Computed example of a mutant assay.
Amino acid sequence: MSIALSLLAALLLDYWFKEPKRFHPLVGFGNMASLLEKRFNLNDKKGGVLAWCLAVLPWVFLGFLLQYSLLDMPVLMALVAGVVLYFGLGWQSLLSHGMAIAEPLKRGDLQAARQAVSMIVSRDTSELEEEAIASAATESVLENGADAIFSALFWFCLLGIPGVILYRLSNTLDAMWGYKNTRYVQFGWCAARIDDLLNFVPARLTAASYALLGDTAIAIKAWREQGRIWKSPNAGPVMASGAGAINVSLGGAAIYHGELQQRPALGPETGDKPSAESIKLACELVNRVLIFWVVLIYVVTAVLVSVQSASL
């Protein structure tokens, strides 16, 4: 039952304390990654591969050693693993960012909503109007449900402490280096591809969960028709399914770094327009899926324990 105990501890810590404002390990990791990028970014893939290895693999190895050293102390290992998982999750942080956009948007305070949405998206937000702000926020909540929560849970259940470390650090490097601009197109190739690989299965499990716990028929149709044509192989299925699940029309044109990009549509053509309500619905969908995953993990864990006990 160690996975179940770790999961409970991590979610309680995240619920009570949310994202630490100071001394978050990922802040220190980000600073180290910046130094590595300055040292190894010579606009080639080899430098990016080496920098990724130096940034991630030592911490994954330490996570393995920590987990191995606690094998004979299952309760302590479960609690330690719960703390590590807590630092790898972004559940309450994601919901807080989403509602920080929805609330001023509902009041008609576009300036506050633009400022809040600029904290979680990479597109230009200074001129966004109400519908575009809501669309950006709803897309971000749906996409980051996978990135910030469900992918981390997947790798933790699969590999324990080293699994969640591997995923979270790799995802952080993708967010820092995975851009297709002059500075990162070669150097960031490794970080982007590894993040795509690590997210491939959990992203599709998230999309399936969105469909199961939302408007299933519309979600599956959107996933099938729209997911594969999105620029990201993992964000496409997640956002298309999520948009269908809450029956909202997303996607379309957006400005990134001063350049207008025509993005495919997401969700049903006849769906609701993005609004403060669609942000709230996206947050509620993420919560329903999290409850579903937690219950499923507990059931599977209990079954495995029962089978193991019966075999002894």
Rank of each mutant, 00 (worst) to 15 (best):
S6P: 09
A10V: 05
L11W: 01
F17N: 07
E19A: 11
E19H: 10
H24D: 07
G28H: 02
A33I: 02
A33G: 11
E37I: 04
N41T: 01
K46W: 12
G48D: 00
L50N: 08
P58C: 11
V60Q: 05
V60H: 04
F61D: 05
L65I: 06
S69R: 04
L70D: 10
L85C: 04
F87R: 02
W91Y: 12
W91S: 08
G98C: 13
A113S: 12
Q115G: 08
S122P: 00
I133S: 03
I133H: 02
T138H: 07
S140F: 07
L142K: 02
N144A: 04
G145N: 11
A146V: 01
A148T: 05
F150C: 08
S151W: 00
A152T: 13
L153Y: 09
F154V: 11
L158E: 02
I165N: 05
L166H: 04
A175S: 15
A175Q: 04
W189K: 13
W189V: 13
A191P: 13
A191Q: 10
N199R: 06
S209R: 01
Y210K: 12
A217K: 14
A217H: 14
K221S: 14
K221V: 01
E225G: 06
E225D: 14
I229C: 12
A235L: 05
A235Q: 11
P237H: 12
V238D: 12
V238N: 13
A240T: 01
G244A: 09
N247Q: 13
V248I: 07
L250A: 03
A253D: 10
H257Q: 13
D272A: 15
I279E: 01
A282R: 05
V286A: 14
V286E: 12
N287M: 11
I291C: 11
W293Y: 10
V294T: 15
L304C: 01
S306C: 04
S306N: 06
Q308D: 04
S311P: 00
